[in-house]
Design a protein around this nucleic acid. Structure first.
Lengths: 124, 124
DNA sequence: GATCGATATTGACGGTTATCTATGGATAGG
DNA sequence: CCTATCCATAGATAACCGTCAATATCGATC
């Protein structure tokens, strides 16, 4: 392990204290229930349409659902379906403002998933 | 953004230079082809059995496939099928030694996925 | 080379998911 | 109210996926 990876690991370990969900994958054998929860969240990321939706939402900070249909070239109900999936995985939050519904990224969930992929701390 | 997050971001950005695969999700709108590739990799993580396999492999450093059947309580062909999925996603490598096949984690792929979830660098 | 043991592959079955069209519910403006 | 607009839901269909039993393949040993 080189020096920078080492530093990065320690910074991440320190930040981990603040995290809530999702047992780390790579530091200790995963229990069945933890595996189920983690898999459910990764399943929400396992579709190209949802990744592009997330990407657009992250890029613009906050997006009206109406602005997410045309760029992806799929039907409005399909977009709605995927947004629901992301919402139920806690990856996005939504807020109604008049006729429109605005979506934004839930940073803490993304952080937690990133942490779940953090490398094990090597003792040597 | 607090100080530690700031440091972590810069360390990660620096390490990113060495990475190969997977366009970051959250820094710029994702192209269709990049989304397809990323989704394919997340799909490999989107199953509890595969997560537990990865976890066991990571924990032990290197594992014989024969030691992965009993702990999960599923049939040998199913384990083999999932190991194949992980292998094709480049998440594990395998090496035949005599009659046995040993699996180990491919750290760079896990790192790349973690990087793909890295937060956008805020300019302010 | 016959056999045994470790893995992979095949084929089938049931459950899940992505997509569409059609429809319904909510909200703003006239 | 009536209508137009935004968004979600329902229902249908096709493709995909996880699982298992059965079978094939590959390497070691006798």
């Amino acid at each position: 392990m080189d020096r920078l990876t080492h530093i990065s690991t320690y910074v991440n370990v320190f930040l981990m204290e603040k995290m809530l969900c999702c047992t780390p994958l790579l530091t200790t054998p995963l229990q069945r229930s933890d595996a189920d929860e983690l898999a459910a969240r990764f399943r929400a990321l396992a579709d190209p349409v949802r990744l592009r939706l997330l990407s657009l939402i992250a890029d613009r900070g906050e997006v009206c659902a109406c602005d997410l249909v045309v760029p992806l070239g799929i039907s409005q109900p399909t977009v709605s379906h995927h947004l629901r999936t992301l919402f139920e995985a806690d990856l996005v939050a939504r807020e109604r403002r008049g006729r429109w519904i605005h979506y934004r990224l839930v940073d803490s969930t993304v952080d937690a998933l990133r942490q779940a992929l953090a490398p094990a701390i090597v003792s040597s």
